[in-house]
């Protein structure tokens, strides 16, 4: 079906013949790059140690479980504990260097079935999973967010469909803010970004009923971030 591309564009051009006044006082900011934004947003420390501390503090506010793990064994042990505590029966994950280091340790947990989402998966099977384990692009100290993408985190659904989302990340993935996150992915994918990128800030939530916070509206009810060195 043909749309009104030319007509809409013609109306826009005609409308823009007259230029618009600035109603507010001269802004004095030439905002052509995100570099100056940093000076106005909430402050973040330069050192990675400070950023980890800030991330931990934001996680608390967001009700994300955040754990610094000394090594892979600690992360795997924590996952085994989560599996036991929450009675996980099925767990989904995707291929990736960090995941490969951690997830196979779980094959010894009794009664836990592992589902690896590869080239394709059955959506019903994924929905039936108690947890999904993914890697990420970055962790954002300023907001306590995790940036996932279609390529780094097992597609679009793995990080939102299972009831508990677990992120495995490395310290070097910590960045100060959103701008730095964008810069990282631009650098990582020079040929074009993944078709899906998302900043996840805590477990899914709603306040639609009487402004009362409820976790697990449609996405994961719990979010765990495991930080490896």
């Amino acid at each position: 079906m043909k749309g009104d591309r030319e007509k809409v564009l013609a109306r826009i051009r005609e409308a823009l013949v007259l230029s618009a006044p600035h109603h507010d006082e001269p802004v004095g900011v030439k905002a052509t790059s995100s570099a100056p934004f940093r000076a106005w947003l909430p402050p973040v420390g330069e050192a990675i140690g400070e950023q980890v501390v800030l991330f931990a503090r934001q996680s608390e506010v967001l009700k994300t479980e955040f754990l610094e793990c000394a090594d892979v064994a600690v992360a795997a042990a924590h996952l085994a504990k989560l599996a036991a505590e929450n009675g996980w029966k099925r767990l989904a994950w995707h291929a990736g260097a960090l995941n490969e280091g951690v997830v196979p340790h779980l094959s010894s947990v009794p009664g836990l079935e592992l589902l690896k989402v590869g080239a394709g998966y059955d959506p019903d099977a994924l929905e039936a999973c108690d947890a999904g384990i993914t890697e990420c692009e970055t962790l954002v100290a300023q907001t306590g967010s995790v940036m996932v993408s279609a390529l780094s985190s097992g597609g679009r659904a793995l990080s939102v469909l299972p009831h508990h989302h677990v992120v495995v990340a490395r310290r070097e993935q910590m960045v100060s803010d959103l701008a730095e996150s964008y810069a990282r992915v631009e650098k990582r994918y020079p040929g074009g970004l993944p078709s899906f990128l998302s900043f996840i800030s805590g477990p899914s939530r709603t306040g639609d009923i009487e402004r009362i916070l409820v976790l697990g509206a449609h996405g994961p009810k719990k979010l765990t971030v495991l930080l490896l060195p």
Partner: peptide, 12 residues
Amino acid sequence: QHLTCYNSMYGG
């Protein structure tokens, strides 16, 4: 909020 829970970018 500092950031809404999900901010997603879709490129096709």
